[in-house]
Design a binder for these strands. Structure first.
Lengths: 332, 332
DNA sequence: TACGGTCTTGAAACCGGTTACATAGGGGCG
DNA sequence: CGCCCCTATGTAACCGGTTTCAAGACCGTA
């Protein structure tokens, strides 16, 4: 394997000069630089990242903390793939790699922190379920630059990216009111979590501004079954609501099914609006009206935030709240 | 930051001994071992992976080559998330991390190879689109241990994991024949690709064994629109088929929509069977009968294959063909 | 008592980079 | 001409581990 000393030897310069050619080319003379580059190309020299990391304590790797194991075993982030694509390509463009961190073997509060330290990971992107894992919080305490998604995550070098959940809730309410509905209910997410709380608040705010009261607000857990159950509950009230805002698309699909089984037509008998704009929303008849999150924007913003923290870790970064948009389909 | 020399100093042994405590504990005496472990725990010592990698040329990282950028920009692997979960947790259990490789900046045939070499990645998992990227093939030529998914990928240290596509095609055909259909058509995937070819072959084999001929076989590109178009084409023939096997679930959803728009009832007027078992299949009315791939099995098998190559790179590994299963829902 | 073997440990070279510091050469200016 | 500054480069220490080789301690045996 060709090393920097080999390149130095062959081009008759010192290793320091070769190193400079690759790191601070502007300080080395034009001819020397070209000579070294030619030699390097000829023997296929590639700087060894481990050695570089060892010397500089910068790895050019961003950690991804994505909690797959404990907690609800099968939890799916609704659009992980879209976020990953955006995140990865934005990072790649700046020569950064994404390391999916396996939590350190031995248990304890710093499972992730240990992995971060061992690998000299420069910063971390956190994709979590909304609840607060102490092992994740330990990262913030240790001063590791962190960007969290869908999770208010604060600390000296931390920030977070989230959709404008409250605004999305307002969009949904406005839409349903404009459509002439007066008896409007909602199916919330699990209430301790921020997205659930904020969507609900935004939604209620517009309703009360219009002088309306919520016609029911059972809570779900984001998953389909809970939406189905909640919808059945709502449909059994009398008078039943003419419109329902489900705070997540999966629950909205469950609600659609419940409406269907109850013999109700959507949107004629009951209108349904979801939140997220997952793939299914466009595919399922009659098409789910939903508040769309900017998936690519989230991934890109995460990449940009992390990169800006890497170049300047001192100035704290403001959270980024991405706008949501209403996508009107057949269900409302 | 605490280094191995610090531990050595505090416990009054040499660095070599400390290193042994962590790598080959059986060769160091019980008391010394305990002493070193205590000291290490006390000062929070963690071995630095970069230094370790530099010395051993093993990084404990598996590269993930997942082609997001070129080609169809938005291509989605139908169940990336499931594969990732299984892959990651199987690797984690053995202390391996997953590095999502950004192709090297400068272009050329070895974009990925360069990234692999710079980072001393031990092996690579390839999730590709089915077509053959020379930059990916360069990995195999260079002798990097590779496991490819859904892609027949061979070489000295390469193997691949795939579902039994032909078997799945047969399952679909048997099911439709059992249901009494005689005029049966299929919507294939893009035909140069292996999954498309094999699903078609398996399907046709059973049909011809039953003395039936294919009532049409337009090709799609895996995406919804193409399934929609192909289905319209099939429905315009006379007599039209009474059953259609779409080689991918997204295309099957498109086919469902076309049938719906043509005023046909599914499955009464026309039965539809898909392939993959993506999330939507269970959600969309009337429920899509489909040939399910073992998503978790694929991820787990990939992890196991790569790990076995890491421990023994000499004996070539046989490809793994995972069984498929028919999931009967409302559409057939 | 001398010898060989096993177990445990230490010294030092090595992996492949970066960088602080020193140095040499060239140009401008008083 | 002498001095100073600036540019281009080299020397060598350092990052934090692993591993080869040698050596000391202790044992049993002839």
């Amino acid at each position: 394997m060709s090393s920097i000393r080999e390149v130095a030897r062959r081009s008759g310069v010192s290793v320091a000069t070769v190193s400079r050619v690759f790191n601070t080319p502007e300080v080395v003379s034009q001819q020397t630089r070209q000579l070294v580059l030619d030699v390097a190309a000829e023997i296929g020299y590639l700087p060894n990242e481990s050695a570089r990391t060892l010397a500089t304590k910068k790895s050019n790797m961003v950690g991804l903390v994505w909690d797959t194991d404990h907690r609800r075993p099968g939890w799916r982030h609704p659009f992980l793939q879209d976020i990953l694509v955006a995140l990865k390509s934005a990072l790649s463009a700046h020569g950064l790699h994404l390391l999916m961190l396996a939590p350190d073997q031995s248990p304890g509060q710093s499972r992730f922190l240990r992995a971060v330290q061992r690998h000299n990971v420069d910063g971390v992107v956190i994709i979590d379920n909304g609840s607060r894992d102490p092992a994740v919080l330990a990262l913030a305490d240790a001063g590791v630059p962190c960007v969290a998604l869908d999770l208010r995550f604060t600390g000296p070098a931390c920030t977070y990216i989230t959709s404008d959940n409250a605004g999305g809730g307002r969009l949904a309410a406005q839409h349903l009111i404009e459509r002439g509905h007066r008896r409007i209910a909602t199916i919330t997410g699990p209430l301790p979590t921020y997205p659930a709380v904020e969507r609900l608040e935004g939604f209620c705010q517009v309703l009360s501004e219009a002088g309306l009261e919520l016609a029911g607000s059972p809570a779900g857990d984001w998953y389909l079954e809970s939406g189905y159950t909640a919808m059945k509950e709502l449909l059994s009230t009398d008078p039943r609501p003419t419109a329902v805002f489900a705070a997540g698309d999966e629950m909205a699909v469950g609600a659609l099914r419940a409406a269907d089984e109850a013999g109700l037509r959507v949107p004629a008998d009951v209108a349904i609006v979801g939140f997220d704009d997952i793939e299914v929303a466009a595919l399922i008849p009659p098409g789910l009206t939903t508040v769309a999150q900017d998936k690519t924007g989230i991934g890109t913003a995460a990449a940009e935030s992390i990169m800006s923290m890497l170049t300047d870790a001192t100035t704290p970064l403001a959270p980024i709240i991405l706008p949501t948009s209403l996508i009107i389909r057949g269900s409302s």
